[in-house]
Structure formats: C-alpha cells, structure tokens
Write a protein that binds this DNA or RNA. Structure first.
Lengths: 198, 198
DNA sequence: CCAATTTTATGACTAGGTACTAAAGGTAAT
DNA sequence: ATTACCTTTAGTACCTAGTCATAAAATTGG
C-alpha cells in the first residue's frame, strides 16, 4: 500500500538526509510514485535538487578542510608574541572539545593550547617539548574562552628553556604548566639530543 | 600574452586543484582561450568535469564524517582494559599529527593518548586529570605506532588516583607520564572538588 | 612556405533538473 | 450524483555543464 503524502514526505526527508546522492528517479521508484510527485514533494519541503545538495556537501567539507589542518598546527589563536620572552593565545571551547555528558573541556585541549604556545614563544626552527608538569586548576566548560599566557622563565643546565604557561577564563586561573623545551639552536652551553618533542 | 599549451595545462591543474568548483567557461576566460580548448586540456590531463569533481569532494567528506568526531572522544584505540588496574591503547601517527617540516609528532597528541587512557582506566562516571608530569623521551615520527600502557599506581592523601602511563614504539620508550586523577566516587577518604580536568 | 600542431566552431546528445500547464484520480461534503 | 478540492501524473519547453565527433581556422616549427 502506498503511504499517505505526509508519511511519504517525512520518509523522503529522512532518506535524502542520510543519502544526499539519490536522484528523483530513484526516489520515485523507492516510494512507488511518479518523478513529478517527488519533485512536488521536494518543492514543498524546500529540498534542493541533487546537484545542489552535492555541492552543499562538497562546500562544507571544503570549508572544514581549510580550518581543519591549519587549526591543528597551532591550537588557539596567538594574539601577541615577543619571541623568547612571552606570548598570549586565546582558545574558545566548543562542542568538539568537551565531554558529551559533562560539557567539561577535555584536558588535552588545554594542554595543546599551552603546549602550542610554549613551542611558538621559542624563537627557533625546531622547538620540542621535553618535559612538562601541569595542573588543571578548575574545569573549563563549553562556551568559555581560555586565555593562555606564556613566559620564558629561564634555562636549565642542559640548555633547555623553561616556559611557564598560565591559562585563565576571565580572572580565574584554570590551568598552569611548566614546560621544559628542547631547541636546536642553543646560544650558549650544549645540549644533547634525546628527550624532546613538539 | 597567452601562455604556451604546456604552461597553461600546468596552471589549469593547479587552479582546479585549489578550486574544484570552477567551470570550463570561467577557466576559458581566465586563460583567454575557448571553452573547447579547456575541454581538450581536461581530456588530456584526465581531469573530470565540474559535476564529477564536486561529487568526489562530497563523497570524500561524507566518508570522513564517520570517523571525524568519534575519533576525538578517545585518542587511540583501547585494546585492553582492566578497570582501576591497567589499560593499553594504540595510536598510529599520521600526517595530521606531525609538524609539516620535521614529520615529528606534536607532543599534545601523545599527551592526548596517554591522558585518554588514564581517564579510561579509572572505573568512574567522572574522571578528570588534576595534575600531570610528563616526559617526551624521544621523538615519534609519522607512520610509527605508539602503544600506551597505563597502570594505576596508588592514591594520594586527597583521594586522587595516580596513573602511570608509558608509551612505546616497538621496544623503545617514547613517552612517560604520571597522572593524578580526580574521581567523583571515592571509595574511602574524602577529596575536595577543585583542581581537576579530564 | 608547407605541414603539423593547436585552437576554435558547430551540431547532436546527455543527466538531472526547473517551471508551467493540463489532465486525471480519489475523497468528502452538499 | 454532483460539485469541489486535493493529489498525482503527464507533457512541454528550457536550463546548465557538460560529452563526443567532425571540420575549419589559426598558429607554429622546420
């Protein structure tokens, strides 16, 4: 038995949502109606034609791609930097950064922001984190804006650079970390190679 | 001056690669040749027509979407777990995890794997990282497989759980960390709330 | 200058539509 | 039963962004 118009349109929407690559002809066959009926349905439901649908999917992924990988390169937007001295970045906590249930930001995103900033503040071709001690002072929730402030605090005996990073939401400290950074161009002292990372 | 055929075709490939949404007509105008010439070029270079190109972009993003967000929830595949005792996960270092220039994995991905595992091994509704001390022992390169092993090592006076995580590439230790985890259901002792995170 | 290459033009055809008009089919109320 | 209305189907003209094939024109190298 052929479904009612209402039911058919409901299923039509669902079908197209989960497979935007389906043509009107295929839909007509699926619902045992004419192609014209499908077109009337799409018109009423304001569902664009196949080609437009595909273009939309493509456009979205293209836009995503632009901010997908580059965004990985540095976590958070660096808004101020004084090489080998200090730097500031901001990071907006969005849906994809939190635990679904609690809406609390996953720690590694805060770590990533701080770590990225520690790498960036080092004025060197190759800066890698060798060690880090970090402290998550309070939870950060979805929608909050985290401001990370990095300060170069000195050097170790091995020629590593110590970077202190404190992250705030408003006036509140939410994260603090001490990063021991390996660098390739060491002005004074020497430093062996092993033990390092980004 | 109009470019030579070779040069035009080189630019054509580049143009289409960075903007697959361009039509033959627009290309013809851009290179000051006829539409037919563009079509001959595409034929020679085996570049599909606009609609096919768009469809390809859309198809790819459709496939990507399936593994995009779920992958964020836990970094690395957990292959073994004994709640409140130990756990093992593997993580394959791909292009998107490394510095472009050096092909060395960015530290926060190794941290994320270890941190995810530390959260997972805690048999609790709400487990958050409060503190961590980590050490990047050697660089990890693109293509390497990192095996992280977490072991619950004890408790602090505040009722926090200590988790030791060591990550290996083959037999080599590449990362090691000590995580102090906050948990909501504390069997014995009490623990205040602040200072925590995933 | 001539031959070969390259470019342009033209016509016929395609998929997957839009937009519009017109005709049926079914149902419900009068 | 007839009218009225909604729904469905059919058909036509037109659109975009192409394909394929053929032929003529323009350009270039030797």
């Amino acid at each position: 038995m052929r479904k009612s118009k209402r039911e058919r349109q409901r299923l039509l929407q669902e079908t197209i949502r989960e497979n935007p690559f389906i043509t009107d002809e295929e839909l007509a066959e699926k619902f045992s109606v004419s192609v014209q009926t499908i077109r009337l349905d799409r018109l009423e439901l304001a569902i664009p034609e196949l080609r437009e649908r595909i273009k939309n999917v493509a456009r979205q992924s293209f836009a995503d791609k632009v901010r997908a990988l580059p965004l990985e390169e540095v976590i958070g937007d660096i808004i101020d930097i004084e090489p080998d001295a200090s730097a500031i970045s901001i990071f907006d906590v969005k849906e994809e950064h939190v635990f679904r249930r609690t809406r609390i930001a996953r720690g590694h995103h805060l770590f990533a922001q701080a770590n990225s900033l520690a790498v960036a503040v080092i004025h060197d071709e190759l800066a890698l984190t060798a060690k880090a001690t970090i402290r998550f002072v309070r939870q950060v929730k979805e929608g909050e804006r985290v401001v990370a402030k990095a300060k170069v605090a000195g050097k170790t005996a091995h020629g590593r650079t110590i970077v202190e990073v404190n992250s705030y939401v408003g006036q509140e400290l939410v994260f603090s970390g001490t990063f021991e950074m390996y660098r390739s161009n060491i002005e004074k002292k020497d430093g062996d190679s092993n033990e390092h990372r980004d």
